[in-house]
Amino acid sequence: MRRDRRFPPIWRVLLAFLAAPFVVAAGFGWMYPFDGQSPSNAAVAFKSAAIYLYAVLYPLMFFVGLPSYLTLRHFVKATPSYSASIGVISTLIPWVAIEMLFGPFKDEANGVAVHSSGARTAAGWLDFLVLGGWIVALGALAGLVFWVVAIAGHKSPEALVSG
């Protein structure tokens, strides 16, 4: 006998997919702002967050996050830990692929060479790992934001289990 499958309303899922990338964009806009001629750090961070959001995170959400949600909602229970792990995977895998394919996008960080003669230096690998740590943390937070917006207020989270 087939179990009753109840999923959150589509408006909650869409709102969650719009809200969760803001967490990552705000974090990256503040930590890794693009150089600009704005009068304040907040203005540079805001503009950087908008670029991250529209150029990177919304396409990533559309091509990775949405298919993950639509597929996994039939197989796993919607819990904060699963949502956080999907957030981590959705942000970490594309970033690692881009970093490995194209290498570092800068020659130095804080006055220290991060790559020399086409290869990463020790400082370059450390910079790679630190950025990866921030991506993991912000991806997990975005997954939790998704869970809070889409799942947490739904009438019966236990009913989100199928099979």
Results as ranks from 00 to 15, higher is better:
residue 61 M to K: 04
residue 110 N to E: 14
residue 72 L to I: 11
residue 133 G to I: 04
residue 7 F to N: 13
residue 78 A to M: 04
residue 35 D to S: 09
residue 117 S to I: 15
residue 26 A to E: 03
residue 151 I to F: 05
residue 114 V to Y: 00
residue 4 D to T: 11
residue 52 Y to Q: 04
residue 16 A to T: 04
residue 62 F to S: 06
residue 149 V to E: 15
residue 154 H to V: 08
residue 129 L to Q: 05
residue 109 A to K: 09
residue 144 L to V: 11
residue 113 A to I: 01
residue 80 P to L: 03
residue 138 L to F: 10
residue 71 T to K: 02
residue 12 R to Q: 07
residue 111 G to L: 01
residue 146 F to M: 07
residue 12 R to P: 07
residue 36 G to L: 01
residue 161 V to A: 13
residue 143 G to F: 01
residue 163 G to C: 13
residue 13 V to D: 00
residue 62 F to N: 05
residue 106 K to D: 08
residue 38 S to E: 15
residue 142 A to F: 04
residue 107 D to W: 00
residue 55 A to M: 15
residue 81 S to D: 14
residue 99 E to I: 04
residue 98 I to A: 15
residue 36 G to W: 03
residue 70 L to K: 09
residue 79 T to K: 03
residue 118 G to C: 09
residue 141 L to P: 08
residue 23 V to G: 02
residue 68 S to L: 11
residue 35 D to R: 07
residue 40 S to G: 05
residue 44 V to Y: 05
residue 63 F to E: 09
residue 114 V to R: 00
residue 31 M to Q: 12
residue 13 V to R: 01
residue 141 L to T: 14
residue 103 G to W: 06
residue 88 V to R: 07
residue 105 F to Q: 09
residue 111 G to A: 02
residue 90 S to C: 10
residue 4 D to P: 05
residue 58 Y to R: 10
residue 132 G to L: 00
residue 109 A to M: 12
residue 41 N to Y: 06
residue 155 K to T: 15
residue 134 W to D: 08
residue 103 G to L: 06
residue 159 A to Y: 01
residue 113 A to G: 07
residue 162 S to D: 14
residue 153 G to H: 06
residue 16 A to D: 07
residue 80 P to V: 02
residue 71 T to G: 06
residue 124 G to N: 00
residue 126 L to A: 11
residue 44 V to L: 11
residue 158 E to G: 06
residue 10 I to S: 12
residue 123 A to Q: 02
residue 87 G to Y: 07
residue 120 R to F: 11
residue 12 R to F: 04
residue 96 V to D: 03
residue 102 F to M: 11
residue 128 F to E: 02
residue 157 P to D: 01
residue 23 V to D: 06
residue 9 P to H: 02
residue 111 G to N: 06
residue 141 L to C: 11
residue 133 G to Y: 01
residue 5 R to D: 09
residue 138 L to D: 10
residue 43 A to V: 04
residue 89 I to T: 12
residue 20 A to D: 08
residue 163 G to S: 14
residue 68 S to Y: 10
residue 68 S to Q: 13
residue 106 K to M: 12
residue 45 A to T: 00
residue 91 T to I: 09
residue 144 L to H: 09
residue 1 M to T: 15
residue 10 I to F: 06
residue 35 D to T: 10
residue 69 Y to S: 00
residue 82 Y to F: 14
residue 18 L to F: 10
residue 138 L to T: 09
residue 66 L to N: 07
residue 119 A to C: 09
